[in-house]
Nucleic acid binder design. Structure first.
Lengths: 164, 164
DNA sequence: ATTGAAAGGCTTCTTAC
DNA sequence: GTAAGAAGCCTTTCAAT
């Protein structure tokens, strides 16, 4: 389904989506048209979900990242659906997972400072009933990338445990 | 520095960077050239860091996300620099923070399955000396966006605590 | 079927006002 | 900020493989 050439195309595009198709083709050893068709196909199939601009967190004044671990007594699907809807409303919540183990949910939240976090937190718990919450703050962002590893992609025929 | 029009431009671009400049201008009430100049400036200033393609995690076979909490006895800058370099080598690590509180570092890692996680984990600890590690797995990704909240941007003059 | 070259149409970018 | 033009890229067509 995805072959080695597709993988190289994806690698280029998730690094920089402004590279012209002709240039991508040149790099992967394809001329413009077939390269363009491959990209089109990858978009149709949903392998490429979207093309976006990545903003600088500092510049938009969200310098603090917080991780919120939530434990709840509620475990039914209805409650989760409502919970998920409430959370999705908050643009500060950039990630939201249902977890295995002790913690039920994990949120990643970005805000300007601790004070803003506190305000956010109050708005959050006013909207939803949560038993147990604990927050940890990130002091320094050492790595944060939208690039997924491509070395696990199942390419037909060859299964190379290759590098990126 | 960033005004309300810039903010709307950023909002559009971090949602979909394929929208033509003329169309963005139309939406924010600007003609093409000034809108184009604003985008250019936002890129120069580093507010817009990059333009990328967002891939579907399933399609590239990284269905499992794991959060690794690391506690170490080492706390000097040299050790961290080396640690950071080692971690950055792993494409599976998509996020990496130095934390406040009990946990020293938090990693987000994406892999195909638990088995692959185990293999990754072994490679990780073989490369670096870590005292205490604990891993939790995400069962379900409810939200995961590259879009930062824009309601905290300090726009000149008006300080509206507005919605996105 | 798949490829690559070439042509049309749209976007980006530049310049002049 | 507007308008218009130049350059470049995307997208389609078509002939050739």
């Amino acid at each position: 389904m995805i072959d080695r050439i597709d993988r190289r195309i994806l690698s280029i595009l998730q690094e920089d989506s402004t590279v012209p198709v002709a240039e991508i083709g040149r790099r992967v050893g394809l001329s413009t048209t077939p390269c363009w068709r491959r990209i089109q196909k990858l978009e149709e199939e949903g392998v490429i979900k979207r093309r976006v601009a990545i903003l600088d967190a500092r510049s938009v004044n969200v310098k603090v990242a917080a991780f919120i671990s939530i434990t709840t007594s509620q475990h039914n699907a209805d409650w989760l659906a409502k919970f998920a809807d409430v959370i999705r409303e908050f643009p500060e919540v950039v990630e939201f997972y249902r977890m295995a183990g002790k913690v039920d949910y994990l949120l990643k939240v970005v805000v300007p400072d601790i004070e803003a976090y506190d305000a956010f937190y109050k708005r959050l718990i006013s909207k939803i009933d949560i038993s147990d919450v604990s927050t940890t703050f990130a002091m320094e962002e050492i790595k944060n990338t939208s690039q997924l590893p491509l070395n696990y992609v199942v390419t037909e025929k060859t299964r190379e445990p290759a590098k990126e």
